[in-house]
Amino acid sequence: MKIIQMISEDEAALYDRQIRLWGVDAQKKLLSSRILLININGVAAEIAKNLVLGGIHSLTIMDFKTVSPEDLKFNFLLDQSSVGKNRAESCVNALQTLNPMVKVYSDKEPLSLKDPQFLSDKNFDLVCIISNDFDEINKINKICRNNNVLFLSGYVFGLYGFMFVDFNSYQYIVEAPKISEDNFDKKKNAQDAGCSVKQEAEEKLTFEERKTDFKSFENFINEYDHVLKNLSTTKLKRLSKTYLIILLFREFLEHFKRPFDSKIPEDTENLLNLKKKLFDDLKIDQDLLSDTYLLSKTFDEFSPVNAILGGIIAQEIIKAISKKNEPVDNFFLFDGNLMLGEVIKI
């Protein structure tokens, strides 16, 4: 791994506004981080943009699919000339232009053909996969967990989106403000003295080390039946709609052995049927997520939500790399109807 002794003058000038926010130490960690991003759709393009702008060491885009005209609607890194070419390769140029100081690589080999050790900390500090295929997420999450690689996942479906975080056993630092005794006295004196204005309390920051043990994605896949059974009807009604939709996707996968695809017309119908059964089983009101509502909304990507989720996920990645501030543990769910983004542990 490349070790950076000093932040260069160029870097200091370029990253000035963010170094003033997260500090030079965090920036240094970012500048030495190697990140793998699997599947480059619209929300992934947002994540890639944010990471490359922030200044990481290297970003590897992995995708074996080819660019369809549909992709152009959401992925701003692509243009007309990319159609038919590999998705990962087609994004490299646009990303590189955003920040020439970051190394941008592409990889079009499917993960299934890779050596299991490909996803290890020898190659990557963090892996992020964008997918609605929960089996795929689960598989990669397991490998990353075993190899001690930080793991994130996420997806956007219409007005909804989620992020899943697994940093395994994760240690980080939080800054806590503390008004020093010393300063307090000084302030009192100044007040007594009359003329001088009251002084602003000069807080000293204390650093506190904390640890969080994350749950695996498998836990969510396997335990959720149990989770649901233990929920009372009242509680279920309060579940985020985003969460209900994720549950539906999980049901769909289990039932049809493939992820839900909004481009296949009968999938929506199948999803509605699954919903009726699931909600009846759970004894919750079908109108909690009404059919008309589901039918009126797209489960495609949606650019404004891509921007929001892409911002949240990239920020979480930056947080994870700099090992600073409380991480999201372990799901972030966004609902664009309510304009609500909540963090829940599942």
Binding site: V305, A307, I312
Partner: peptide, 27 residues
Amino acid sequence: KSLAGNIIPAIATTNAIVAGLIVLEAL
């Protein structure tokens, strides 16, 4: 420089999220 120049830190991710929220509201 921060103090004298009244510099407010700014990052890409916050702006991206805010801009996404603006469009949802506008719609």
